[in-house]
Amino acid sequence: MTAAGGTITILIGAVLLRLTVTDTYSRYVRPELGVFLTISGIFVIVLGLATLVGALRPGRNAAAHDHDHDHDAVGVGWLLLAPIAALLLVAPPTLGSYGVGRAAAIDIRSGGAVFDSLPRSSAPRQMTLLEFGQRAFDHNGSNFNHASVQLTGFVSATESRGFQLARYQIACCAADATPVVIQVVGTSGDPPPLDQWVTVTGTFRPGGREIPKLAATSIVEIAAPNEPYE
């Protein structure tokens, strides 16, 4: 294998390690995969270094070239430079509103979970959009018990009197992302812009059919969270 192959391999490992060190990887894959990305990154860097040293060592060419040259060519491996260059310079963003209408929507009724009633407390209860949706379909949301809840997601559509809040669920990587969407109502003024991340506090409002409704009492615009998927 040529020195170029070794260099590309080292770059692959460097990109993998950089993604895990900067925590950017959670934009693309489940957080649990992080440790495996680190292990793969180290493995690949060691492999690339071994190749590079072997290729540059004097006297190596005469001994090692007694077989097929094709086998040594980087060939299609050059294509790996495309994602490497892209990821070293610009990290693509987390999935946003563009994909909400394209992906298969999550069916929040699947599983048919049954929930205990929420306690009435002063502090709003933080929950995922998925749990909110599942609670909404369990006995028409009576388990909310009028308690205040807090949801974090991004704006996936805006309407005159509210907006849709969405968040993706991923099982492995962003290619299998499926969005959960809820309707935020009772807002005043202009809704936040598309793809803006917000934390919404409010109470469940019955009557949403396919898309459950949340009557907002406060909306805070936030930066995209470190782990953007549920």
Binding site: I12, L16, L19, Y25, R27, Y28, V29, L33, F36, L37, I39, S40, V44, P83, A86, L87, P92, P93, T94, L95, G96, Y98, G99, R102, C172, C173, A174, A175
Partner: peptide, 17 residues
């Protein structure tokens, strides 16, 4: 383009391990 790029690198990264 952003959607394409995110899915493209996601598949590549998730496949690496």
């Amino acid at each position: 383009v952003a959607h394409w790029a995110t899915i493209f690198v996601s598949i590549a990264i998730a496949a690496m391990p």
